[in-house]
Design a protein around this nucleic acid. Structure first.
Lengths: 348, 348
DNA sequence: AAGCCATGACAAAACGTTTCACTATTATGT
DNA sequence: ACATAATAGTGAAACGTTTTGTCATGGCTT
């Protein structure tokens, strides 16, 4: 509205200059008598003065606004990540714009422009699947931005800016090791054909680790599905008919679908077949489950990203080079954690 | 950063005034020769000029920024709503700030202030549970805002600003009617003790409609649980032991928990007991399910809210009264829709 | 030749802050 | 009594836009 209280109004009401009011309300170290100080604060309160962040941004060149670009806010993993990142940011006085790219490279590009126009102070970027496959376009778009960018969750092959994600390869290895230690040799895997690299890495780690133990996956049992309930449900029959004793699903929803089908066939987990999922997402969905799965520490991931961001923001304030956040890019890969529930049986 | 291209830069590069550049780039109807027009646009592009929305906001008094305050972004319902609202807004050139109140009245208040400071053009507000119960505080906070507010999804008893939600009472009635028509008379209900009024309304509609058909719910079978999987799972035994033939769960997750327990006891749905859920959320979660449930048309809800918002924004631009969006508040209640799957059996 | 209109373009104010450099007043030291 | 220093506070520029009112030019009408 037009009639919000401004510094000028407060100044007028207290009989001092705008400068003084500004100085006092921002608690700047300046010489103003205690009485005036009190008076100004009181009046500002009375008049319901709220500083105009827009005007402030214009002169300070800091908007106190960060942005998070997610491929799909309806995906619980991203929603949780968004929540955690927002918590981190607001603890530092920043607001967060959350926007959806719908995993489209095009929307992604448009949103980067929008963010730039809004003078955000930093961007947490979860690239679209397409951009993870070939990041050259994204890279040049990011280079045009005038604020730090931190690649979040989804890494790209080339390392050209700070990035924090989860070590999916190692997660796959963990799953493999658990199966091996439990004595399984006839093992299946359900992954997806098209993805952003994360699930791919899970499978690679799984397969490689099995290989180290001289176990190979029967190509018949190397299944692909959508990353949803159906993906597990539909491929279940093939695996259940094969006599495999263990299945690794590249995410929990597929594992849930798999177990549903197993149940329908009166097979039980883990008595008849062992199962490992990925993401540890079922409990957050409110679905009680005994699925052994692999957890990505989302709060920790948020912390890492946020830490990178704050560093770059500080650095930017001090340096003069054009895009200091593209120098010396850091990457951190969080260790995944096995969450042991009851879905893996030891074979003697 | 400091070195973004400004209007001045473009003006200098083309040898015209800042005014002219601004006029041309905004496609204002003004008299500028075609050659200059082209030249300006070309140069602006070359220099990668991006208008500074902050500066623009300061003078136009429109930030093109809307905000959405949700109680819990990790709740799929809100996540979907957020996505839909964002889509609506960005189609109009607005950006959306999504923030989490964690259902805390306190955080809610703080965020309202933040939004105000940022000169948002409008706020979609999903009140905290506490505020739905007693909205007097919220009301006065909203009255302090200088932008339109639209109450979203969660209504408050007093109608003091535009609001759009779903008719939960009617949803409960739908469930009751379906059971009645299917010939059920021994009916149970699982709801939650503490909520924001929405699930309460569902239950009230359910109970009232049953009453009209001279059916009452045995107090023994009027159960309360948390609004999660466990809520249904834990109360299941009591209901299953009672000989009830039908259960209405105030949300899908409780229904899922209930059916899990039933399955464990080798009872099947709907052969042994009929079940209705609420929210139609399982399929969006990627969980295939045969649960008959009640759907809230989220895209439509988003459209309604957005329509209210755009009207109020227009109105504000034209009127001079202090807070025109508090006059003549509109409320719209969307009709819920029964999604028939296979979880209700007809008793002959 | 004077008046008028259309065209093409611009200067300057305004938006609400922050911040730098500066002034006016009073107190202190000698 | 004078210089110096500390105290209390202010004026004005700057941030990058939008927008209003004005100006210069040249062609057309009378």
């Amino acid at each position: 509205m037009s009639n919000r209280t401004t510094l000028r109004d407060v100044a007028k009401a207290t009989g001092v200059s705008i400068t003084t009011v500004s100085l006092v309300l921002n608690n700047h170290p300046t010489r103003v008598s205690e009485e005036k100080r009190e008076l100004i604060k009181r009046k500002a309160n009375e008049l319901n003065y709220v500083p105009n962040q827009t005007a402030r941004s214009l002169v300070t060149k800091r908007s106190m606004l960060l942005a998070l670009l997610v491929p799909d806010i309806e995906n619980l993993f991203f929603a949780s990540l968004a929540k955690e990142i927002e918590d981190e940011c607001s603890a530092d006085g920043y607001s967060l714009i959350i926007a959806n790219s719908n995993d489209s490279k095009n929307t992604e590009r448009q949103l980067l422009q929008q963010f730039e126009a809004r003078n955000i102070d930093g961007l947490f970027l979860i690239p679209s699947s397409e951009s993870t496959k070939d990041s050259t376009d994204l890279r040049s778009e990011v280079a045009q931005m005038s604020c730090p960018v931190v690649l979040t969750d989804r890494l790209v092959r080339e390392q050209w800016c700070d990035a924090a994600g989860s070590d999916n390869y190692q997660g796959g290895q963990l799953a493999a090791r658990l199966f091996v230690e439990a004595g399984h040799t006839h093992i299946a895997c359900i992954s997806g054909r098209h993805d952003n690299g994360n699930a791919e890495a899970r499978k690679a780690g799984f397969v490689d680790e099995l290989g180290k133990n001289h176990i190979t996956i029967d190509p018949q049992l190397d299944c692909y599905g959508a990353y949803r309930f159906d993906g597990g449900y539909q491929t279940a029959d093939r695996i259940l008919d094969s006599g495999a004793t263990a299945v690794f699903c590249c995410n929990d929803l597929m594992a849930l679908g798999f177990s549903k089908r197993a149940e329908e066939r009166n097979l039980s987990i883990p008595e008849d077949i062992s199962l490992i999922g990925y993401d540890n997402v079922l409990n957050s969905l409110g679905i009680a489950s005994n699925l052994t799965t692999i957890d990505q520490d989302i709060p920790q991931l948020a912390k890492s990203c946020h830490a990178y961001m704050m560093n770059r923001i500080k650095q930017k304030a001090s340096k003069l080079s054009p895009a200091p956040w593209l120098n010396d890019p850091q990457t951190s890969l969080l260790k995944p954690k096995m969450i042991i529930k009851g879905s893996v049986r030891t074979i003697k």
